[in-house]
Amino acid sequence: MSKIKIYLQPTPIRIWHWLNAFGIITLCITGVQIRFPDHLHLFASYKSAILLHNVAGLVVAFSFSLWFIYYAVVSRTLLKTYMPSRDDLEHGLARQAKFYLLTYFLGWKNPHHATPDNKFNPMQKSAYLAIMFILVPLVSLSGLLLTNVSPMRDLVLMIGGLKILVAIHFLLACCLCAFLFTHVYLATLGKTPLEHIKPMWTGWEEEDSTEQPHHVTGSSRLPSVAAMPRTGMTTRRRP
């Protein structure tokens, strides 16, 4: 059985993803020291933790805009990629949940197969929609306000005060961190633990050429998608 490679993750998305990952992990760790300095003393000084947290926040905000510009302007697939369809909501979510919670353990195949045109399963779409459109923007904005309070003090007061802003920032950050645990775990759920993680780093996903996608939406059948000129790359034989 020969293998084919699909170009699943284009370069800007890979850069965004790993900057984001490195940034968010740094933010979580520095964040813990910033909130609990009397319990955790990981970084040299409180000030260095604060500065690192601020810079990491800016990097995440920057990489977020890279993500947004790529999907919204360059590939113009933002909504298509992240917005669950009617079918996703009516059947897809339940199907995917059933897989994760039951049929996965019985050894069944994942009902969703990632293609460049249909990267995410219905549960991923819903989760990423909430995270990328609500959680990350809110955490970033509240963080930006906290990075320099004085110039936007009136805005802080409109929200209800510094403490309320901090509460929002802290709780949303906890949500993001909780998602991170789940995200990393689910990423290891392929045939091998690295099956889904590798394409995120290299951009290319390997698969058996004889294998047909299990769940095909619309015209996005695998062979035609893989050979699509939009990505600028064609399907290559495994070297």
Binding site: L19, F22, T26, A44, S45, S48, L51, L52, V55, A56
Partner: peptide
Amino acid sequence: EDTSMVLVYLFLGMC
């Protein structure tokens, strides 16, 4: 001597 920026440079280097 303020060394608090060292971690920031390290972080940016990794990025």
